[in-house]
Design a protein around this nucleic acid. Structure first.
Lengths: 194, 194
DNA sequence: GTCTATAAATTGATAGAC
DNA sequence: GTCTATCAATTTATAGAC
């Protein structure tokens, strides 16, 4: 895999956006991080917003891919949800800078781009809701408010991008395992054996 | 309570920072929202960052006050934690724009101001950790990782500022009750009666 | 404490050479 | 596809009148 100028540019923009936010990031800062001139940025993307959209779309698609793969690991609701939360937290921890752009810069997208991303988000949330409903139907989960609980479970995974540091108290794996455990405790029917 | 120009300014800046982020907000935008000239902003605060610090400090102190008050409601660990999570989620839902500035613009502060805010945050987290440890000692809670679980419980309350809308599917009260319930399920010892 | 006017620097994006 | 140079607009912040 050759690292192209376009790759360097996306990497540089991701770091800059994650560090200062989209609006506060200058194209000169991006260019400097990617070791190119300010003008070279515009060879690859017409506007700064198009750069953001490319990063946000790829990030959302990768997160969705990871969530779907985890969902397919098991047919049993508890193990399925455990795998989904573990994978989602793990992804956000290992890709915390992309995650920050993905989660915090949604409002900076154009209305057209925002609609594309909103659809991806809806599908991710629906994926988790489906798993919760299946578990309730099988009687192994007890979830009074599926919509709110799905949001809460996702909050657990997503919010870590706000503070996670690889050098911190937990590795990505440790945090993912902890979150998976906590999520299961949030939704498991009391009668279910551990 | 008279609404002073300074109040209008803080209110305007909070809304602008929450909507576009600190870096992307212009002093002209703030002035226009507060119905004053661009120059009038500088009568009340020397720099844009001082405005941010004033908002962030007041927000953190108010959240801390709410958390402490809730903690004092009960001596029993489960009810204490239920009250703390309910109050913290409720505050973030009812003050979601202040919450967004408080949570997302930490990095935009000067190192000196950042240190002040970091200390307040440490104390809030410690407050919740103390309640968890007390519950474990009394045998009503089962928490393998106090530090990680405290963070996770706070994530539940904090992350809602990213998406909460008063016109949405849940009111602030409903969401706060749900989060309090979910948090208790995360930490309660299985043997404890509901 | 408010305004108008403006300084001084920085911004996103483009022109044109190589 | 990269660069240097630059435009036109916008930025934070200030000067000075009222």
């Amino acid at each position: 895999m050759t690292v192209t100028a376009r790759d360097r540019l996306l990497q540089a923009a991701t770091e800059a956006f994650a560090e200062h936010g989209y609006g506060a990031t200058t194209t000169r800062d991006i260019a400097s991080r990617a070791q190119m001139s300010p003008a070279a940025v515009y060879v690859h993307h017409a506007t700064k917003e198009e750069l953001l959209f490319a990063i946000s779309l790829a990030g959302h698609e990768d997160a969705m891919r990871v969530l779907s793969a985890a969902s397919a690991e098991s047919d049993e609701p508890i193990e399925r949800i455990r795998a989904m939360v573990r994978a989602f937290s793990d992804w956000h921890a290992r890709n915390s800078r992309i995650g920050r752009v993905v989660q915090y810069e949604f409002g900076a997208l154009t209305p057209e781009h925002r609609a594309v991303i909103a659809d991806l988000r809806r599908r991710m949330e629906q994926h988790l809701r489906d798993a919760l409903v299946a578990g309730v139907d099988e009687g192994v989960l007890e979830v009074a408010d599926v919509r709110g609980t799905a949001r809460a479970v996702l909050s657990l995974s997503v919010d870590l991008v706000r503070w996670f540091e690889p050098s911190g108290a937990h590795t990505a794996s440790e945090l993912a395992d902890l979150h998976a455990d906590l999520a299961i405790r949030m939704v498991r029917a009391p009668s279910t054996p551990v």
